[in-house]
């Protein structure tokens, strides 16, 4: 365990406060090692991209942070305090919201139902207390508010089923849900992978909007142009651990690809602790 050592500060610009850190994460699936003493640092107000080859362990790393799996070893700290999540619900209760690649929406439920899934509002007073009645009006009003905050109110009817929305709109609902409830960190797994050019642009703008409100974002993506456009720092994951953290202004996309595939050694100053 390396949690007693000071946090790594691989880049000069990142003297900002660390929001979410991980040290020495290990995860085995049978004999396959998905995480091999991986480290992770996310600073306040930044967009951190996580890139890596297929099988490098990006998804496992993100699942550990978002509570979907429990690492076998290692420590995760949120705002400097050690945390251990047994389920995505616990991570959410700590203010970490995740937009999964599959979006984790229930297609037959309405937009409002989906946004409040698992944290529904109850009516005040007798009906809510004794009959556990949902406060539909309040949920629909807030859902509409959140969507229009993010400029997504091309959706006419908040009560329409999510399965009747286009791919871009669904992504918008999932991002709005995370932005509405995330208080500390938002994690996005391949948010543009299934989208067209126009919808991707919309999601990248959403990322900037959310960042502008001071919320740090972890972005997992295979799309180098998108990563280099929105990321403040890039975490390169290779063979189950953090290889290096680079500044997208100082390196090219081909450098990044070379590092993550092992074609090129990263410079010493970018190597993580």
């Amino acid at each position: 365990m390396t949690h007693s050592q000071p946090l790594a500060q691989p880049l000069a610009q990142s003297s900002a406060q660390a929001v979410l850190t991980a040290r020495g994460l290990v995860k085995h699936y049978g004999r396959v090692v998905a995480l091999n003493h991986a480290d992770f640092d996310l600073y306040a107000g930044e967009v951190l991209a996580v890139i890596g080859d297929n099988g490098a362990g990006k998804t496992t790393l993100i699942k550990a942070i978002s509570g979907a799996i429990r690492p076998d070893e290692g420590e995760i700290r949120l705002d400097g305090k050690p945390v251990s999540f047994r389920s995505p619900l616990e991570a959410r209760e700590h203010g970490i919201e995740t937009v999964y690649q599959t979006l984790a929406l229930s297609p037959a439920l309405s937009i409002a139902d989906n946004m409040f899934l698992g944290r529904e509002l109850r009516k005040p007073g007798f009906m809510g207390r004794w009959f556990r009645a949902l406060d539909r009006e309040a949920m629909e009003r807030q859902a509409r508010q959140k969507l229009s905050d993010l400029g997504l109110m091309t959706i006419q009817n908040i009560g329409q089923a999510v399965e009747t929305l286009s791919g871009g709109q669904r992504q918008g609902v999932a991002v709005a849900r995370a932005a509405a409830f995330g208080s500390k960190v938002i994690v996005m797994d391949e948010p543009t992978a299934a989208l067209g050019v126009k919808e991707s642009r919309r999601v990248l703008e959403l990322i900037q909007d959310v960042k502008a409100r001071g919320m740090p974002i972890v972005l997992i993506s295979h799309n180098m142009p998108h990563v280099f456009e929105v990321a403040d720092r890039i975490h390169v994951h290779r063979l189950g651990r953090r290889l290096c953290v680079i500044d997208p202004k100082e390196y090219t996309m081909s450098d990044a690809v070379a590092f993550m595939t092992g074609a090129k050694e990263p410079p010493a100053e970018a190597m993580a602790a």
């Binding site: 995505p88 995740t98 984790a104 929406l105 989906n114 899934l117 949902l134």
Partner: peptide, 19 residues
């Protein structure tokens, strides 16, 4: 609502924070 969500897509429901 959770009953519907679980029947619709159990994995999505789990990730949405439903037990």
């Amino acid at each position: 609502r959770h009953v519907y969500a679980v029947g619709d897509d159990k994995e999505a429901a789990e990730l949405s924070g439903i037990r």
